[in-house]
Amino acid sequence: MADQQRKEAFAEQIAGNEALIWKICHLYGNTPEDRQDLFQEIMVQTWQSFDQFRGEAKFSTWVYQVALNTAISGIRKKRRSITIMPQEVMSDMADHSPPDDEQLQMLHKAIRQLNGIEKALTLLYLEDRSYREMEAILGISEATLRVKMNRVKEKLRKLTKA
């Protein structure tokens, strides 16, 4: 019973932050299968770490940490070709096809060419997270983040022009 309540509390919290998880999946996964695999792995990792969430930070900050860690270093690139998730589970998942907006599509394309850390930085910047929150999520000092962000902006400018 307690376990069921925990699961429900978890699902409740995740549902409120699902959009941000899908955004991470979009930036780090190249194919729909990659994105769904990553989404599933993030669900598994967040669930396994859920006990450690003490509420000292916002839940969204905590989810960003787990999801970005999973996207950057928690998933193996070389996967088996078999489907890792039951088909019925996959088909019931939300439809998260790429955005229709042409500019956003171009932006997505450019961001995908960045390295894992730059992608995370861009995402947090676009999501309007403060540098202090970015520091907590990424573990990079605020001063370094500002320098890196300027470089990323320049890089994206070049990539979208090319």
Binding site: K7, E8, F10, A11, E12, I14, A15, E18, A19, W22, K23, D37, F39, Q40, E41, M43, V44, Q45, T46, W47, Q48, T70, S73, G74, I75, R76, R79, I84, M85, V89, D92, M93, A94, D95, H96, P99, D100, D101, L104, L107, L126, E127, D128
Partner: peptide, 27 residues
Amino acid sequence: WKNSTSNHTSTSKNKIMELSQQKSYGP
């Protein structure tokens, strides 16, 4: 970018619970 989230439909809570119980394929 921020508005782009509004188009998303959501995964049901039951599916989230189901997904979280799957086996990890991480390193």
